[in-house]
C-alpha cells in the first residue's frame, strides 16, 4: 500500500511569525516544483496575541512640576496586526516560490498576507488550488470566463475547463518583501 508516514516534525519557528504550518517537504519532494506555489506559514493571529499591547511603561519619572507634553501620546504605537490583518482569525502568511507573478510585484521568497474573509472578486490576486497545489495568480472572472492569470510573459493563464471547479483558498492583501 503506497502510504506515507511522516516523522515527527516539530513546527519550526520563524522569528516574529508565530507558528508555522507543518508543510512537510517530504510529501512534495518527488514532484517537480510548480511555477509559483505558495507555502503556508500560518498563524498571524499568534503574532497578534504575542505582540498585543503590553502595558505602557513611562519613560519619564513622574513630574512634580510641569508634565511632559509627550506623555499623553505614549500609547499611540502602531499595531501592525491591526493595520495589516483586519480579520486575524482569517489571515494567514504564505511564502512565495517561483516567479510567475513578478510583474505584479510578487517575487520569489516574498511573504503574502492572505485574508480568507474577503470575497474573491475579478482582478484580485488570489491563492487558488490547482491540482491539489497552492498557486498565486490573478483571478479573471467576467462574462462566464474564469481563468487564473500569471503576471509574467512566459507563463500562460490557467483556463478552467468545463466542469472544472476553481477553489480559491484566499485573497492576497499584502506582499511583504525583504529589501
Amino acid at each position: 500500500m503506497p502510504e506515507r508516514v511522516i516523522r515527527p516534525n516539530p513546527a519550526r519557528l520563524e522569528p516574529g511569525l508565530g507558528v508555522i504550518a507543518n508543510r512537510v517537504h517530504s510529501l512534495t519532494a518527488s514532484k517537480p516544483p510548480a511555477a509559483t506555489t505558495a507555502e503556508p506559514l500560518g498563524a498571524l493571529c499568534s503574532l497578534a496575541t504575542r505582540s498585543h499591547r503590553p502595558l505602557t511603561r513611562l519613560r519619564w519619572p513622574v513630574q512634580a512640576g510641569f508634565p511632559s507634553p509627550a506623555e499623553d501620546d505614549q500609547d499611540a504605537a502602531i499595531d501592525l496586526n491591526e493595520l495589516l490583518a483586519p480579520h486575524p482569525e482569517a489571515c494567514f502568511l504564505l511564502r512565495v516560490r517561483g516567479c510567475s507573478m513578478v510583474d505584479a510585484g510578487i517575487d520569489d521568497g516574498d511573504l503574502l498576507l492572505v485574508d480568507r474573509a474577503l470575497e474573491p472578486s475579478h482582478g484580485r490576486i488570489v491563492i487558488a488550488v490547482v491540482d491539489g497545489e497552492f498557486t498565486v495568480k490573478r483571478l479573471h472572472r467576467q462574462a462566464q470566463v474564469v481563468r487564473l492569470e500569471a503576471a509574467h510573459a512566459q507563463y500562460p493563464a490557467i483556463e478552467l475547463k468545463d466542469g472544472q471547479e476553481l477553489q480559491v483558498w484566499g485573497v492576497v492583501t499584502r506582499v511583504i518583501k525583504s529589501v
Binding site: 508565530g18 507558528v19 504550518a21 507543518n22 500560518g42 499568534s46
Partner: peptide, 13 residues
Amino acid sequence: VTALSSNYALYAD
C-alpha cells in the same frame, strides 16, 4: 491512506 505525524502547534492555532 496518508498518515501524518501530529502538529499540535498548528491545531492549537
